[in-house]
Amino acid sequence: MAGSESDESLMGLVAQGDQRAFRILMGRHMTLAIRVAQRVVGNVAEADDIGQDAFLRVWSRAASFDPRVARFTTWLYRVVLNLALDRARKPSHEPIDEAAEIRSDDPEPVTLMIEDEKRGMIAAAMATLPERQRAAVVLFHMEGLSGRDAAQAMSSAKRHSSRCWSGRARR
């Protein structure tokens, strides 16, 4: 039953205070929220905090969600991005955690080091980008959203704005 309900119909129930629907939504999308947050802020602990705050907003502002305007995931992306960009604006001296992460299933240590170095360079380059460019790269290139969905998640009025931003940032 839980698997067959759409995110949008679950959000309708959450707006009425249905805790079961809220738990299902968290089970489905908490990973996404944390991952996107970590890609923007580059810090594990902050990403976890943003994941928490994002779903607190889902709970408290469910009534403002309109499925005719956007899919739930687009709305969630927007909530997470807003929170992450707010945090990114604050000065921080935390190290970029993602750069140091090593995946245990990689075969060759040398390949691992090269990959890790490249990822470190990407993370460092991401950290230097203006926030909207960073958000665009995260959504379009990292999360694989279409230009339209990325623009919608970024609350952009113009359909093509996120494409321009992401293209500029990638270069």
């Binding site: 908490m30 990973t31 944390i34 594990v44 976890d48 955690d97 993602e98 995946r103 290139h141």
Partner: peptide, 15 residues
Amino acid sequence: ARGPDVTPERAGRVA
């Protein structure tokens, strides 16, 4: 595309 690893346990703790 290689994102940070977010394990189900971590997501569960945050939830």
